[in-house]
């Protein structure tokens, strides 16, 4: 066990865990966050995605001791049900959800990419969503929601 200082959604938090623990378990169990989810633990689905230093990162494959003091943003760090982030609002507007378990992978991967590539083409966007999985098959609505956000030009 060892102590780590993490900055998650703007708050500094200290945890005492095995240094090899995947970040996902720390976020879920030590910090009781619900956004990032265990899907595969293998980097194949995206359900565990968080944003670290502006990039979408799969927290199931990221040992906690490799994160350092970097700013970590989870799905709950973007907005709240009362005041959703524009990309979250786009998913509400398009009703682009069924079970919702894939949300971290879809929303955070798209957001991180569009923040860095605001003028991305549809093909580039689709490429950026490589190995992001939604088993409920909401793909069509999700792409609509992401495009709606992209064309708003609103980046928070």
């Amino acid at each position: 066990m060892a102590m780590f200082n993490l900055t998650v959604n703007g708050r500094r938090q200290t945890v005492d865990v095995d240094p090899a623990t995947p970040l996902l378990y720390v976020l879920n169990d030590d910090l009781e966050l619900r956004g990032p989810k265990f899907g595969c633990g293998l980097g194949q689905c995206g359900a565990c995605t968080v944003i670290v230093k502006g990039r979408a990162v799969r927290s199931c494959m990221t040992p906690v001791n490799t994160v350092g003091g970097a700013e970590i943003t989870t799905l709950e760090g973007l907005g709240t049900p009362e005041k959703p982030h524009p990309i979250q609002q786009a998913f509400i507007d398009e009703q682009a959800v069924q079970c919702g378990y894939c949300m971290s992978g879809v929303i955070l991967t798209a957001k991180a990419f569009l923040d860095q590539n605001p003028r991305a083409t549809d093909a580039q966007l689709q490429q950026a969503l490589s190995n992001v999985l939604c088993r409920c098959g909401v793909n069509v609505r999700m792409m609509k929601a992401i495009r709606r956000y992209a064309t708003q030009g609103v980046r928070a």
């Binding site: 619900r34 265990f38 959800v97 949300m103």
Partner: peptide, 27 residues
Amino acid sequence: VQRLDIPAMVTGRYEYAQDVRVPGMRH
């Protein structure tokens, strides 16, 4: 009618079976 549960889902607030935590719980 828009689904009532979607705002909580897209903002990471929704409680799934995977999120249930009770005091004193082990794994």
